[in-house]
Design a protein around this nucleic acid. Structure first.
Length: 592
RNA sequence: GCCCCCAUAGCUCAGUGGAUAGAGCGUUGGCCUCCGGAGCCAGAGACCCGCGUUCGAGUCGCGGUGGGGGCACCA
C-alpha cells in the first residue's frame, strides 16, 4: 500500500550508501516498527556493517550500524509520505503520516469489500486432494483435520489467486472393504442397516477385525473373497455396490454438515484398472520385479536410484495374488489427474504417517519419466489423538464419531444461545448455534501447526470461550450491531470517504488499522506456506484489537466527523473479519 | 538399524536471524450510568541440555535427552 514511498526512500538510502562507499544490500528488508503505537516500517544496517567488517574495515558492528542508520536518516531528510524518521541502535524507522495511512487502509477495505486481501488471479490451476474416506468404516473425529484443513487450504489458495480443483478420493476398495463384507456375509447375511448406520458400519468393521485376530485361520477365507471381488464375481460385486451406498450417504451428510465442498470424486475402484496397467508397464520396462506367485511385484527404488543408504526403500505395487493395493491405485490416480487437468501443482493433503508411501509413489512416477512429477506435493498433517495420546482406530472401534461431535456441539451451542440471547427467533438461534458449533470444531484444527499432534477432548471441544472462533464471530457481530444501530445495513450507506481522521487516533484505532493493513501480505504468506495458522492468528488479532477499540472508543455518541470515521473503521474491521473467517470456512453470523 | 515430526508459562498454543518472547485456559484482584459482559483491565508465571555458525539464536547447524511416528504385499 506504500510501495511508492518505500521505493523512494530506498533510492535515497542507496544514494547515501554509494556516496560514502558503504556496500549496499541487494534488498532492503522492511518490517513494521514494533512497540511504536504508530505506523512505520523499519530496516536495520547490521548486515551492511558486518559486510564492511568482513571487508577488512575495523569496526564494531552494532556501533557502525548505528552510525550508518544515523547517516541514512540525515540523508533522507523529510521524505514524502512519511511524517518523521528516526535512527535507533542501528535501526532506521520511517513513520507514515497517520491521517494518510488510515485513509488508505480503510478506503481500500471498503472499496474492495469481499475481495480485500485477495491476490489477483495467477491463471494457474492447482488440484488439492483432501479427503480419502474409506467406505465400510465410520467417519470419525480423526478424519476432521484432513477435511477441515484441506477445505481451508483450498480457500486460501483461491484467495492467493490460484484456480483450485477440490478432489475427493474415497477408498471404496481394498482389504478393509473385503473384511467388512466377509463379516457381513458370514455373520449378518441379509441384514439391513439400522437408523444409526455409520455406527453400525463401524461396529461390523471392528467386529471383523476382532474375529480375524481371534482366529487367524479365517484369514484365508477373507482373502478368497478378495480374489472373488477381484475377478468381478457378480454376487460379490452386487453386495459391494449395495453396502458401499450406505457409506456414501454418510459421507455426504458429513460434508453437508461441515460445509465442505468438492469438485471432483475419484473413486478408488475407478483407478484400479489404470493402476494395474501402470504396474504392467513397470514390469515391462524392468522397473518393477515380478516375483509372483511366490512374491509380490516390487519396485526397488533405492537399487534403481543407486542409493546405498536406505532412502526410498522398496514399494510393493501389486500383491502376490495379483490383487491391487494402495500403491497401485495411487499410481493410476496421479497420472489420471494430470491427464484430465492442466495442473501447475497437485497437492495431497494426507496424514503424515503416509509420507514415505507418497514419496515412493512420486519417485516411481519420476523414474517412469513423467514430466510433471516436480509438481506433486504432499502436505502432511499430524493426527488427532484422544487424551493420553491414544490414537483413534476404527479397527479397534476406539473412535469418537463425527456425528456425535456435531450433535453435542450443536446442542451445547444452542443452550448457550438460549441463555445469552433468549429473545431471538428459534430459527435464528439454530443458525447461530450451527455457526458457533462448527466454528468451535474447525478453529482448533486450523490454528495450530500442521505438524503438531492435536488432542481431542470433549471438554475442550465444547468450550467456546477464549482463543477460538467464537471470539472472532462475536467481534464481527458487535461491529454489525453498531452499524445497524447507525442505520447502515449496507456498505453503500456508509458515510463518504475519503477518511481523514479529524481527531487524534486512539491507540486501539491505530492497532486495528495496522493489523488490517497487514492482511493481504498474511494471505500470500499463508498460501505459500500452506498454513491456515497465519489466517487464524490474523483474524484473532484483529478481533482482539476490535474488542479493545470497542471498549475504548465510542462511535455513535461522537460528533459527526469522529463518528463517521469510526463507522467506516467498524465497517472495514467487520469486512476483514468476515473475509478471513470465509477463508477458514467459518461463518460469521449477523447476530448471535 | 535407517528416516521423519515434536519439545516455549501449571495446561493448550503463537513467535519472518533483529529492538521489550505473545495469547487462551487456569489462577489472584478489579470493571456494566456507556454502541451487546459470549466482553474489558491489571498481577503472578516460560524458551529441554551442550557445542557451534553469526555483529546478533526461541528461530540456523551438529551432538545429546525425552515423547510420538514411519520403514515390502493394511491404508
Amino acid at each position: 500500500m506504500f510501495d511508492r514511498e518505500r521505493l523512494t526512500a530506498e533510492a535515497l538510502i542507496r544514494a547515501y550508501l554509494a556516496e560514502n562507499g558503504i556496500p549496499a544490500p541487494d534488498e532492503f528488508l522492511w518490517v513494521p516498527v514494533p512497540f511504536s503505537g504508530e505506523w512505520g516500517i523499519s530496516t536495520s544496517f547490521f548486515a551492511v556493517a558486518a559486510q564492511e567488517a568482513r571487508g577488512g574495515k575495523k569496526v564494531v558492528v552494532p556501533q557502525r550500524a548505528a552510525e550508518i542508520a544515523e547517516g541514512a536518516r540525515d540523508a533522507l531528510g523529510e521524505p514524502e509520505g512519511f511524517a518523521r524518521t528516526e535512527a535507533v541502535r542501528g535501526y532506521l524507522n520511517l513513520y507514515f503520516d497517520t491521517a494518510e495511512y488510515s485513509r488508505r487502509v480503510i478506503d481500500a477495505v471498503l472499496e474492495e469489500g469481499e475481495a480485500f486481501g485477495r491476490a489477483p488471479g495467477r491463471g494457474e490451476r492447482v488440484m488439492v486432494e483432501y479427503s480419502q474416506p474409506n467406505t465400510h468404516k465410520p467417519i470419525h473425529v480423526g478424519h476432521l483435520r484432513n477435511m477441515i484443513l484441506g477445505a481451508a487450504v483450498c480457500n486460501l489458495l483461491e484467495a492467493a489467486g490460484w484456480d483450485v480443483v477440490r478432489a475427493n478420493y474415497p477408498g471404496d476398495t481394498g482389504l478393509h472393504v473385503i473384511k467388512w463384507m466377509w463379516n457381513y456375509m458370514r455373520n449378518h447375511p441379509g441384514e439391513q442397516p439400522p437408523e444409526d448406520r455409520i455406527r453400525w458400519l463401524g461396529d461390523l468393521y471392528a467386529e471383523a477385525n476382532r474375529l480375524l485376530e481371534e482366529d487367524p485361520e479365517l484369514e484365508a477365507e477373507m482373502r478368497a473373497l478378495f480374489k472373488r471381488w477381484d475377478a468381478g464375481d457378480p454376487e460379490v460385486m452386487d453386495l459391494w455396490r449395495r453396502t458401499r451406498e450406505w457409506s456414501i450417504e454418510g459421507f455426504n451428510q458429513a460434508y453437508d454438515a461441515l460445509d465442505i465442498p468438492f469438485d471432483v470424486y475419484y473413486w478408488q475402484s475407478e483407478v484400479e484398472e489404470a493402476g494395474k496397467k501402470v504396474v504392467q508397464e513397470l514390469i515391462e520396462r524392468g522397473l518393477a520385479v515380478d516375483e509372483r506367485p511366490e512374491g509380490s511385484v516390487v519396485v526397488h527404488l533405492d537399487d534403481l536410484l543407486g542409493l546405498e543408504k536406505e532412502t526410498y526403500r522398496a514399494i510393493v505395487v501389486l500383491r502376490s495374488d495379483g490383487t491391487s493395493l494402495y500403491a497401485t491405485w495411487d499410481l493410476g490416480l496421479a497420472i489420471r489427474k494430470f491427464a484430465e487437468y492442466d495442473l501447475a501443482r497437485s497437492i495431497y493433503v494426507v496424514d503424515v504417517r503416509q509420507s514415505l508411501h507418497l514419496q515412493q509413489v512420486f519417485k516411481t512416477l519420476e523414474l517412469m519419466g513423467y514430466s510433471w512429477t516436480d509438481k506433486l506435493y504432499h502436505l502432511p498433517y499430524e493426527i488427532v489423538n484422544l487424551p493420553g495420546n491414544v490414537t483413534m482406530a476404527s479397527r479397534e472401534g476406539t473412535v469418537v464419531l463425527l456425528e456425535d461431535l456435531l450433535r453435542e456441539a450443536f446442542e451445547r451451542a444452542r443452550e448457550i444461545v438460549d441463555e445469552k440471547n433468549p429473545e431471538l427467533e428459534a430459527a435464528v438461534k439454530d443458525e447461530v448455534a450451527r455457526a458457533v458449533s462448527l466454528g468451535a470444531i474447525k478453529y482448533p484444527m486450523l490454528s495450530r501447526e500442521n505438524t503438531r499432534i492435536a488432542t481431542f477432548d470433549w471438554k475442550q471441544a465444547l468450550d467456546f470461550n477464549g482463543q477460538a472462533a467464537l471470539y472472532i464471530q462475536y467481534a464481527a457481530v458487535r461491529a454489525n450491531s453498531i452499524l445497524s444501530k447507525a442505520g447502515l445495513r449496507r456498505a453503500e450507506e456508509l458515510p463518504e470517504g475519503p477518511t481523514i481522521p479529524a481527531h487524534e487516533l486512539h491507540a486501539s484505532e491505530i492497532e486495528l488499522i495496522d493489523l488490517i493493513s497487514r492482511v493481504p501480505a498474511e494471505i500470500v504468506r499463508a498460501a505459500e506456506e500452506f498454513k491456515t495458522l497465519h489466517i487464524t492468528n490474523s483474524a484473532y488479532e484483529i478481533a482482539r484489537a476490535f474488542s479493545d477499540f470497542y471498549n475504548h472508543c465510542p462511535v455513535l455518541s461522537e460528533a459527526a466527523d469522529v463518528r463517521d470515521f469510526r463507522l467506516r473503521l467498524v465497517a472495514a474491521a467487520r469486512q476483514v473479519l468476515v473475509n478471513l473467517l470465509g477463508i477458514l470456512g467459518i461463518e460469521a453470523p449477523e447476530v448471535m
